[in-house]
Design a protein around this nucleic acid. Sequence first.
DNA 1: GTGCTGACAAACG
DNA 2: CCGTTTGCCAGCA
Length: 109
Amino acid sequence: MKSDRSIQTKERIWQTVHQIPRGKVASYGQIAKMANLPGYARYVGYVLKTLPGDSKLPWYRVVNSQGSISFKKGTQQYLLQKSILEGEGIVFINGKFSMREYGWHHGEV
DNA sequence: GTGCTGACAAACG
DNA sequence: CCGTTTGCCAGCA
């Protein structure tokens, strides 16, 4: 069995991602830290990757700490995430955006 | 158990 | 600013 702990861990990550307000983004490491799981940045990526297709989670608001999308540039996934974020008002310049401007801090809406 | 992988991140040069 | 190295950790073969 997949241990109850890992299940709750995933749910805490889902909850945290769910709280990211529209038009803002958060890094994998930041999500992990907020979910009280420092060091689990890569695991956050894994959790999002294995989300069920019908999930309503705003996975596209999770990006890397360098202010860019973690999918390989040019892939369908990269383009999808980029267009959704642009639709929420985020401006890309050479594949990057300002974390200082769009970064989310727990507590703000 | 062992070794490799990855939607990461920070430190180097 | 960019490519590389190192640290990280659960999943999976």
